[in-house]
Amino acid sequence: MAHMASEIIAFVLSVSGWVLVSSTLPTDYWKVSSIDGTVITTATFWSNLWKTCVTDSTGVSNCKDFPSMLALEGHIQACRGLLIAAVSLGFFGSIFALVGMKCTKIGGPDAMKAKITCFSGFLYIMSGE
């Protein structure tokens, strides 16, 4: 019983980690900078992995998507690739972890489930979650 409870807790924690990593993909404020005037902030520049925006002192925003993937800076390309790989590997790792748990009926005998669970752990380690 304790073994099954630890499997379920580990699965829930790993899926919640995957959800948190997935929620960082559409986040807007990865990089924020501002130009200050003498009294007020005149413009705020902010960007994420997909677009860059400017907000002026009146609150009007102007956003522009990145025109080309090849024109991006290297660290943005690396972040995009690593985050997409982490979300993909974490998804497949959670599916294999669900199949490999002893409390599920799919996945075959216990020896096969142990191999599936080890593979899901490898995917989680590779995803960095």
Results as ranks from 00 to 15, higher is better:
residue 46 W to E: 03
residue 48 N to S: 01
residue 46 W to H: 13
residue 52 T to W: 03
residue 65 D to N: 12
residue 93 G to M: 01
residue 33 S to V: 03
residue 111 A to F: 08
residue 110 D to K: 08
residue 59 G to W: 09
residue 119 F to T: 14
residue 117 T to M: 14
residue 41 T to E: 15
residue 14 S to D: 03
residue 84 I to S: 08
residue 66 F to T: 01
residue 80 R to G: 10
residue 112 M to L: 11
residue 34 S to D: 14
residue 16 S to G: 14
residue 50 W to S: 08
residue 109 P to R: 04
residue 73 E to K: 08
residue 117 T to K: 15
residue 56 D to Q: 01
residue 111 A to H: 05
residue 118 C to V: 12
residue 102 K to Q: 08
residue 78 A to Q: 12
residue 35 I to C: 10
residue 29 Y to P: 00
residue 102 K to E: 10
residue 68 S to M: 06
residue 36 D to L: 13
residue 90 G to H: 05
residue 99 V to D: 03
residue 97 A to H: 14
residue 17 G to D: 02
residue 70 L to E: 08
residue 88 S to V: 15
residue 93 G to V: 02
residue 55 T to G: 00
residue 101 M to P: 06
residue 15 V to W: 14
residue 54 V to M: 05
residue 69 M to S: 13
residue 79 C to E: 08
residue 32 V to W: 08
residue 24 T to F: 07
residue 41 T to W: 04
residue 104 T to S: 13
residue 19 V to W: 01
residue 89 L to Y: 03
residue 50 W to V: 03
residue 27 T to W: 13
residue 32 V to S: 05
residue 87 V to S: 13
residue 34 S to A: 15
residue 36 D to C: 11
residue 75 H to K: 09
residue 27 T to C: 02
residue 88 S to K: 06
residue 88 S to G: 12
residue 84 I to F: 11
residue 36 D to E: 15
residue 34 S to V: 10
residue 71 A to V: 01
residue 19 V to C: 02
residue 32 V to D: 10
residue 40 I to Q: 15
residue 93 G to C: 02
residue 21 V to D: 07
residue 48 N to V: 01
residue 112 M to I: 06
